[in-house]
């Protein structure tokens, strides 16, 4: 038997889950299990209670609501990847998902699980940070909405109290035809990123940067927005030299993580390279859309 003994709870409603969270000591929510189960198998985590939220029907779903996309926290990563709605209106999310583990893990893994686990090298938190997503939490003491910018409170520490449940995510959509790019560096396809960048770009009629959002992963305790690079690009024509200069600021403005996979300096260098690649992809897409519609 790999995980140590625990009590297993299988609620069927959010209300039941919140009651369990409020009353049980030392409880862990089991979503897709692609992070919690390995940690339990290796006994890094030994919760007294496991609350399996896989049977709560209304926690999963993808819905376009005006200019936002609403996603249930228990929506499987694979379902998001295959969703025509996501591909059409949130293509950055689709592209990033192809880098999240493998089909076999995306089949079980959930968007909410990734956000709540908050691995410093995960792809989805960076995408949602670039998109200024809002996270909707439910709790018996009241519900809360947390901006993605406020989500990471430190290493693998989301802004989520032990008695709260991440129920849904809303992603404000960018205008049709916006450019996007996701670039990451991994030793093997499907690994966590050593550094990765999510880029969103919208150009005005003159081809100048109307709006830009850049977020990097794998280089700090959580996803980081590159506000200096965004400011450099805004209102300017995104020529090669400007993109290169903006990307270079990534190496300065991120702290970098030292670990067994690479030094802080190396990751900062990678962050700059990935930022440049993501921006170039976003620019190419923004320009081709402009040509198609303009």
């Amino acid at each position: 038997m790999k995980p140590p003994a625990f009590s297993y709870h299988r609620p069927h409603t959010v209300a039941e889950t919140l009651e369990l969270l409020a009353t049980l000591e030392d409880a862990k929510l089991l979503a897709g299990g692609q992070s919690l189960m390995p940690m339990m198998n290796f006994r890094y985590v030994m919760p007294a209670n496991v609350i399996d939220i896989n049977r709560i029907a209304d926690l999963a779903g993808i819905e376009e609501r005006g200019d936002a996309l609403a996603i249930g926290a228990m929506t499987r990563q694979r379902d998001l990847e295959l969703s025509p709605v996501v591909q059409r209106c949130c293509p950055l999310l689709h592209e990033a998902l192809l880098n999240v583990g493998h089909v076999q893990t995306r089949n079980r893994g959930t968007i909410g699980g990734s956000l709540a686990h908050l691995d410093p090298a995960a792809e989805l938190p960076a995408v949602l940070h670039a998109h200024d997503a809002t996270l909707h939490l439910r709790g018996r003491r009241g519900d809360r909405a947390v901006a993605m910018a406020e989500w990471s409170q430190g290493f693998m520490t989301p802004n989520l109290a032990p008695d709260e449940l991440l129920a849904a995510i809303t992603i404000p959509l960018w205008p049709t035809g916006h450019g996007y790019g996701f670039a990451e560096f991994t030793r093997r396809h499907g690994d966590f990123a050593m550094a990765g960048t999510a880029a969103l770009l919208a150009l005005d009629a003159q081809g100048k940067v109307e709006r830009v959002a850049l977020a990097v992963t794998g280089v700090d305790t959580g996803p980081v927005r590159l506000s200096d690079a965004e400011a450099m690009l805004l209102g300017k024509a995104p020529e090669d030299a400007l993109i290169a200069a903006a990307a270079e600021t990534a190496a300065i403005s991120v702290p970098g993580l030292d670990d067994v996979h690479g030094s802080k300096e190396y990751r900062r260098k990678l962050a700059a390279v990935m930022t440049k690649r993501a921006l170039l992809a976003a620019r190419a897409r923004a320009r081709s859309e402009e040509a198609a519609h303009g």
């Binding site: 089991l30 299990g33 189960m37 399996d52 076999q104 079980r108």
Partner: peptide, 13 residues
């Protein structure tokens, strides 16, 4: 019908 890591699922799931 979908692949899953059987080491990352509880049997009861």
């Amino acid at each position: 019908g979908r692949t899953a890591r059987s080491c990352l699922m509880l049997a009861v799931q």
